[in-house]
Design a protein around this nucleic acid. Sequence first.
DNA 1: TACGGTTCTTTCAACTTTGAAACATTGGAG
DNA 2: CTCCAATGTTTCAAAGTTGAAAGAACCGTA
Lengths: 171, 171
Amino acid sequence: MRRSGDVRTEESEASVTRTESTVEPRWLDDEEMAAWLPFVQLLYLLPQELDRQLREEMGVSHTWYSMLAALSAAPDRTLAMGELARSSMTSPSRLTHAIATMEKRGWVVRRPCPTDKRSQFAVLTDEGFATLEAIAPSHVAEVRRTVFDRLDREQVDQLRRIALTLLEGLG
Amino acid sequence: MRRSGDVRTEESEASVTRTESTVEPRWLDDEEMAAWLPFVQLLYLLPQELDRQLREEMGVSHTWYSMLAALSAAPDRTLAMGELARSSMTSPSRLTHAIATMEKRGWVVRRPCPTDKRSQFAVLTDEGFATLEAIAPSHVAEVRRTVFDRLDREQVDQLRRIALTLLEGLG
DNA sequence: TACGGTTCTTTCAACTTTGAAACATTGGAG
DNA sequence: CTCCAATGTTTCAAAGTTGAAAGAACCGTA
């Protein structure tokens, strides 16, 4: 076992000797592994940190934050539930629960859609907007502290390209 | 409002005119925003995709996967709960629940630590190890498909450096 | 050896997330 | 017009996650 970690390339030598019918995958090589280990750590640690800060400061998860942000950027601060789910990258079910709770807090109201009775609009209230405005500065400060203060201009550009490339393979 | 999205720099113009006592943060500029929007999307979408694949294939979340992986790489496939929590980047509480469930499935057993009666060891069973071996190939294929097949060697190296840099600011 | 602060783990209750199923509505094909 | 599949949303029950608090054992100091 020369390597270790998340993807367990260290098993590659062992598994070629096994007699199973599964096709042997192409394991990660040393350079890929050297990138994957820190990247996957970042992938789980950074959202956790952003969530922690938002929750501590304002009792809001990043999921909620992006729902509020999406609404605030929409015309009339209004979006259909489905669109909101898509633009905040969350499941319909999760959205329903979250919006229900936010509605109780007075941040959002639901309105029936006049042209499609299946559909509901979610509308950001003034109170919801004010809440978002109150959160935003410390959130941006956190993003700056954890990300942009640590990268030079060139790396910011590299990050942009990499993220855009990888996003193509999702959604 | 010229820009939109997660960090809501579009509010910067509005907020300078407000009369609140909060200090105006340094908002993200265009280049930072152009990197942040896809990056934050990736940050939530990629783990979701990795989780989805692991869950679908083997009924296991990425959290569980990294616990199993950490155990499999440890001497005697054994780690104290605390060490396991640290190396799989999870909270003690979450670890307890997860290990309890895995123990029911026969993947792990808990053993008292002989030298410190507060501490418990988690030990990966043969069955747990076999499960991990069964998962690994399709997981590495997924990682390859979503990440490494899309980046050239230079980008892999850039990603490594960026991830390492940002990790310094966490933990 | 007894105190007290610290460490390691679990428990607890509240909350969130999940996917499947239910419900209501729509729009197109026959 | 009447199906029927597709769409948009909610409900449901099961599972997972959270942070705080509890419990147990450790270790240094007196």
